[in-house]
Design a protein around this nucleic acid. Structure first.
Length: 511
RNA sequence: GGCCCGUUCGUCUAGGGGUUAGGACGCCAGGUUUUCAUCCUGGUAGCAGGGGUUCAAAUCCCCUACGGGCUACCA
């Protein structure tokens, strides 16, 4: 096999969304699996839709996901420049070649004129194609002098592809879908070069893929309809076309259609890998990174949305995935995105990495909230909490970890408190006060002895103890948590908690 | 409208002529746990419909329906 070279070619018209990230992922994985090269090419030929910051966003998002390109604007490489706006001479040469060989022609029809034609034809669909081009203003119908005159006047001019008049089948073998056939006569004469002198996607794409020696074009299904045009273009140039693989789309979790950026709002999930600050509206769109997802979890979730290894494994690192990834195991149908499953992947990756792995990140998260825990404290908290949370931020949001509870679950208090409960906890407090070493084991031993001496069950004292210290009925081992708080804080929380709870109880009785 | 792609539990999917149609998420139940969560065990639920081909069809073919994409001087 020739060298595998694949590219991800987004256009900097806005933030990359998760569908785009998945396309990049599959490209990267395919390159990794074959010892190939993953290229990032910026398709910035539409100056009208250019968005400031979008290119930087793309690079940063890919980097966060671990999908760093081997070649690209930042990474460099032999086939640069990697921005299409910097490759215009290549496209001009290509156009000259096509014009010379009769595969393209110049057209002078204005957008308004074409719009009018389309309007007039309604409800039929009007196309600029082999059947209509003979009646329009182009270098095929106009004389050479007239064309020259128009150009001399500076009349706007585009170059269109001259689709073959004779209807033939255009067949291509898609690596995911198998054989796909199109009738050539349904194709229209696509604009290859716009009036501003910049190429359209079709031209730039084919020219760059050829010059960058791309072996496999792995892209979204939305490109399948233009694949026959691309095949024709390769033929016109006399180039061999790469292998095509059209990926299924990611669909909305509910309702119809492909996932779009507005869906996140309604569904309460991010659509973008990292936060996007829209420079024109000033809006911020949430990203998976800022939601607390680890890149490994995010990428794993994306991986399984349209691909599977053929066995029952679901949890993969990038390297593991690269070892089994293949295009023929990509699913053909669109995949509805499921936020619940994204959650599950995150929880799996969080726990799978173990407490130690999250010490520094947790320390940073806490610091950003004004809580300065040392590494030992972070580790202790992770040991207690990792299996109870999905995100590290869930820990930061657990307020009783940092401060005595401001709220107590009144219903729970009413249910669990007997008349002697507070008395018991006060007795327990004096026992705890006597401890010289306040470790988890020591607290547990003290507790057990306390219960045995009074012939009490765990539930009668432990749950009230928990409620007094956390305000809630669930959470980690109270022995661990007491040790984490330390003797002084434990006792003061207990005393304050009891006071607050007594207030609740007397209120309840009074009403 | 036209062209192209697709359709297995609610969702992601395995299965490609003979399977009790498998797994995962979710949900429900039980167990473990001082509690919650984790974990374990079990349950729930599916081949879009109709015609063929075949001894035999989720699987191959055709039609229909439905879903999706494209149909710009956007990518």
């Amino acid at each position: 096999m020739t060298d595998v070279r694949v590219r991800f070619a987004p256009s900097p018209t806005g933030p990359l969304h998760m569908g785009g990230v998945r396309t990049a992922l599959y490209n990267k994985l395919f390159a990794m699996a074959h010892g190939g090269t993953f290229i990032l090419r910026i398709e910035d030929t539409d100056q009208g839709r250019f968005v400031e910051g979008a290119e930087a966003y793309i690079e940063e998002a890919l980097a966060w996901c671990g999908l760093t390109p081997d070649e690209g604007v930042r990474s460099g490489g032999d086939c640069g420049p990697y921005r299409q706006s910097e490759r215009t001479s290549l496209y001009r040469d290509a156009i000259a070649q096509l014009l010379e060989r009769g595969w393209a022609y110049e057209a002078f029809d204005t957008p308004d004129e074409l719009d009018a034609l389309r309007k007039a034809a309604e409800p039929e669909v009007w196309q600029y194609d082999a059947s209509t081009r003979g009646t329009l203003k182009n270098s095929l119908t106009l004389g050479a002098e007239e064309v020259a005159a128009l150009k001399a006047q500076g009349a706007p001019c585009v170059v269109r592809f001259k689709t073959p008049e004779t209807a033939t089948d255009i067949q291509l073998v898609d690596a995911i879908r198998g054989e796909v056939t199109f009738q050539s006569n349904i194709l229209d004469d696509k604009v290859l070069m716009k009036a501003d002198g910049l190429p359209t996607y079709h031209l730039a794409n084919v020219v760059d893929d050829h010059h960058m020696r791309i072996s496999h074009v792995i892209r979204g299904e939305e490109w399948l309809p233009s694949a026959p045009l691309h095949v024709l273009l390769y033929r016109a140039f006399g180039w061999e076309h790469p292998v095509f693989a059209h990926l299924p789309l990611i669909l909305k979790p509910t309702g119809n259609g492909k996932l779009s950026k507005r869906d996140g709002d309604a569904g309460g999930f991010p659509v973008f890998p990292i936060d996007w600050h829209d420079p024109t509206s000033g809006d911020t769109w949430p990203g998976y990174r800022e939601q607390g997802y680890t890149p490994e979890a995010f990428v794993n979730m994306l991986l399984m949305l349209g691909w599977n290894p053929g066995d029952e494994r679901e949890l993969f690192s990038l390297q593991e995935a690269a070892q089994t990834f293949s295009l023929d195991r990509v699913v053909k149908s669109g995949a509805r995105f499921n936020p619940d499953k994204a959650h599950w992947f995150q929880a799996q990756h969080l726990r799978g990495a173990g407490p130690q792995a999250h010490v520094m990140p947790l320390q940073a998260v806490m610091a950003s909230r004004g809580v300065n825990w040392d590494q030992a404290q972070c580790l202790a908290v992770l040991d207690m909490m990792l299996e109870r949370v999905t995100f590290l931020t869930d820990i930061a949001n657990t307020s009783w970890l940092v401060a005595a509870p401001a709220q107590f679950d009144a219903k729970l208090v009413r249910k669990k408190w007997k008349d002697d409960t507070s008395r018991l906890l006060k007795d327990l407090a004096s026992e705890l006060q006597r401890l010289d070493i306040f470790s988890s084991d020591a607290v547990e031993a003290c507790f057990t002895a306390f219960l045995e001496a009074r012939e009490l069950g765990f539930g009668q004292v432990l749950l009230p103890f928990r409620i007094a210290l956390t305000g809630e009925g669930g959470g980690p081992s109270m022995f661990d948590f007491s040790a984490f708080l330390g003797q002084e804080a434990t006792l003061s929380r207990l005393a304050d908690g009891l006071a607050a709870i007594e207030a609740i109880r007397s209120q309840t009785e009074g009403s």
